[in-house]
Amino acid sequence: MQAIVRRLYRDRWGYAFIIPSFVLFAFFFLVPVIWGGYLSLLDYKVFDKQWIGIRNYVELFQNHLFWVALRNTALYTLAVVPLWLGKALIISALIFPFSKPIQTFFKAAFYLPHVTSAVIISMVWLWIFNPPFGLLNYLMDLVGLGPHAWLGDVRTALLSIVFMQVVMGGGSSIVLITAAMGSIPYHLYEAAYLDGATKAQAFFRVTVPLLRPTLLYLMVMGTISSFQVFTNIYLMTQGGPQFATTTLVYLIYDTAFKQFNFGLASAQAVVLFAIVFVLAVAQFKWLGQEVEY
């Protein structure tokens, strides 16, 4: 007992420095995470709550809308993440041979849309997509195509949001990819050229494999953030038309704060967490072998 007290006293400054952070962390992370799991086992409406075991989960998996939301989120992620990465990789490859000031200029140009808030981006694109007056329909008109209700059509709504994200996104990935390109040792290229490699071969056989840790990191982060898309949906489509853009997080928001069914919404959040976790682990496992150079 005395030994423990003495040890705690010896370490007192470590604890003192941690405490402000830890109190907040415990109160707003640890407790909510555990509590969120507990809430998912309750029938929790605004005024009454009752233990119902896994019935929220049963209801969830039998609910058609949940599967629609899951499909929409998966389609969105499958489209956005590879296109973001592809765009960032192409731009990085194109600007990397140039001098630092030129590189910085382009990095900044692509980064600016990335720091602009999702609310602003959504408002601007609502205006661009606007059926009679928006910029996109004007451009369509120029090439002889009629106006289209991009966000109002079940077939094009989700696609339009993907298009918007790809046009605006990729800025932070370019920064990371060019940084990683800079750390590839030059002698590897020398060796490749000595063996008669062409530029294209050098890119696909030297650059891309050595970028794998960076690309993997970006893929995992992109997947996690795409699975959480909310603000654009909230502002642009409210999940419509006919649930064509209802994503998981939009469904969670709707269940919790429109229908006030906290128990069911917590179960949805737990499932979201499980999916994101499994995806991240799978990506690291399949693609994460060590790269030595």
Binding site: I18, F25, V31, W35, G36, Q228, A269, L272
Partner: peptide, 26 residues
């Protein structure tokens, strides 16, 4: 120390929506 730091790092992986509802009720 290590256990605590592991808790911090681990919680970086948790999507914010998991804590959204409990935080709101809190």
């Amino acid at each position: 120390r290590n256990l605590l730091f592991w808790l911090y790092v681990g919680s970086m992986m948790i999507p914010g929506q998991v804590t959204l509802i409990p935080r709101y009720i809190l």
